[in-house]
Simulated scan of single mutants.
Amino acid sequence: MKIRSQSLYQRSRWLAKPMHSGAYRPWLIERGSLTARLQAKTKGFHVQALTVHNDLPCRDEAHLLGLVSHQHALLREVMLMDQQQPLVFAHSVLPHKSLRGVWRGLGRLGNRPLGAALFADPRVIRTPLQYKKISKHHALYMRAAKNLASLPPSLWARRSIFELNSAYKRQSIMVTEVFLPAVLGLN
């Protein structure tokens, strides 16, 4: 896996650094596979698929992926769990034009981790991470916190784009991870 350097997208107010993120910082800045780190820190790691459906991505997601307005993509949302404890909510945007070749099966992963497939391929390039502290009014917060017993005032999220240059030209998908309070117990 390579990291592609570029100036990040300023329009959506995501940050280039996780400023004032406190105990979440080590999790947010992790450059390797979050799946692999969680597997190493937990006893009962698994992926719980929540939804996979064809829909419009958020405007800033579509812009960053080069999708025209009103262009649908496959949206996948899962919870990364330790036994019955939710740790991370993951939201992925998979444009249909990217689900070809070696990425053909990414839309049918079910309870298998997306990260394992992405980090296993040395041809995949990852853009620098972007960070955002999301409040209770943010759509990702609402979906991530749906099954939490107590609601924190905000949650930290990070996102990046994974790219694969292949015979099908450039294929890109976006992965956003929202860190839930329980992940702090794994440090």
Rank of each mutant, 00 (worst) to 15 (best):
I161V: 04
Q71I: 02
A62K: 04
F45R: 02
G22I: 11
A62Q: 02
P86E: 11
A36W: 00
V175N: 06
L106D: 07
S135F: 05
Q84F: 03
A62G: 10
V124Q: 13
N111L: 03
G110T: 05
I134G: 06
W14M: 04
N54D: 12
K17L: 15
R25P: 00
L151C: 08
L15H: 14
N111A: 14
S69H: 09
R31G: 05
A182H: 12
V183P: 00
W27Q: 11
A157Y: 05
A139D: 12
V78Q: 06
N165V: 02
M1F: 11
A149Y: 13
L56R: 06
K17G: 05
H46S: 10
Q10W: 14
G66Y: 09
D60G: 06
Q6S: 13
D121N: 15
L155N: 10
P26R: 10
A49Q: 15
H70P: 00
P86N: 12
N147Q: 15
S98T: 02
S7A: 14
Y168L: 02
R4Y: 15
E77F: 05
A149T: 13
R37E: 03
Q85C: 03
M19V: 12
M79P: 00
R112L: 09
Q171T: 13
P95S: 11
V78D: 00
K97V: 07
S166W: 12
D55G: 13
L155I: 10
L180H: 09
S172P: 02
I3S: 06
M174F: 15
N165F: 14
A149H: 10
Q6D: 12
Q83H: 14
A117W: 04
F179W: 13
R112T: 07
H63D: 10
E77H: 11
F45S: 03
A40V: 01
L184N: 01
Q71K: 05
S172F: 08
D60N: 11
S98H: 06
G107I: 04
F45Q: 00
G32K: 03
Q48W: 09
L114A: 02
I29G: 01
G107Y: 14
R143M: 01
A120P: 03
A167P: 00
V52L: 01
L87Y: 13
L80M: 06
G66H: 03
V175C: 09
T127Q: 09
A49K: 14
H53Q: 15
A73F: 08
N187A: 08
L118D: 10
K97Q: 11
Q10V: 09
W14F: 06
V78E: 14
S166R: 11
I3Q: 11
H96T: 04
T176Q: 11
P128E: 14
P95C: 05
L99R: 14
G101T: 07
L65W: 08
V175Q: 08
Y141Q: 11
K41P: 00
Q83P: 00
E30C: 15
R76W: 10
E163M: 06
K169G: 11
I125R: 10
F119V: 01
L74I: 06
R143S: 10
Q83W: 08
H70C: 04
R31C: 00
P95Q: 12
G110L: 08
I161G: 07
H70K: 08
